[in-house]
Amino acid sequence: MRRAVKMTAVAASAVLALSAAGCGGKKASTGGGGGGDSKKIVKVGLAYDVGGRGDKSFNDAAYAGLQKVQSELKLDIKDIEAKEGESDNDKIQRLQLLAQSGYNPVIAVGFAYAGALGKVAPKFPTTKFAIIDDNTVQQPNVADLLFAENEGSYLVGAAAAKKSKTGHIGFIGGVATPLIKKFEVGYTAGAKKVNPNIKVDAKYISQPPDFGGFKDPAKGKTIAQGMYDQGADVIYAAAGLSGTGSLQAAAGAKKWFIGVDSDQYQTAAADEKPYVLTSMLKRIDTAVFNFVKGVGENQFQKGDQRFTLKNDGVDYSKSNPTALGDLPSTIDDLKQQIVSGKITPPEK
């Protein structure tokens, strides 16, 4: 019950933030030349995890969110990357450096910052912090941005099972971390919902602490080829940059591919586009956008902010209608059932 209230509150605030965004946009366009001066300058600090850790599209999505805000608020962005072999103390110092230098809000991109943020946030009570993919830090000045990757994956899993003629589909994970396993579990559950007898082949490119699996298109291609050869005809790749290799394999085998995080139909090469069935959308950009905008307009919200199907924080893309055909009717029905709480996709 309490959870439901919270969810509604979050959803409502998201809607408010979005409508506020709409207003802001109008103001900026009607304000003309003079509008620039009245814009408030927000100094945003972004602390990334080690370059390879966390796939490229993930970090870039956070930055894309900031660029979207830039059209409405004047931003002074400072982004710093972690160093290999560093400890929590280095992360503490990085966050402190940003906070001390007047960056407010400060966004910690990735769960690895949880320990450090827990120690830094109380020291800078007036600075607003956000952390992506973690909610172990509960402080009055910390927003925890979480995504229901399993919900979005459930929908694309259903799409895959519906589209498959062989009754055999594949999943390629970048690195075998709990986070990526959440994608796999949701995908498998969605597929089984549509076809209980479906065969789901799951493979991971690398094991932690080797995070190279997020940026290895060659391996993404080889694994996908192997799966297609063995009879899979739809593959969902939650593998960051490596997924681009899997897409190449799909185009080569003339079979289906499902993208992740951002709409990969948009970024695919022309000859690959027809094979992108859909993409699971994880709106990190929206989350960052809402957060920064909220802080800029003094509407900071602490605690958990879950980005789910309900508030469009996750979704599936419909940019390739020829490929999808009549699938959206089934998937949208499932989506409705998840939103209304009839179906709860598993997390692990």
Binding site: F111, A112, D133, D134, P178, L179
Partner: peptide, 9 residues
């Protein structure tokens, strides 16, 4: 041991 609410392990 899995930490609740975290993606770390």
């Amino acid at each position: 041991a899995k930490v609740a609410g975290s993606n770390n392990i």
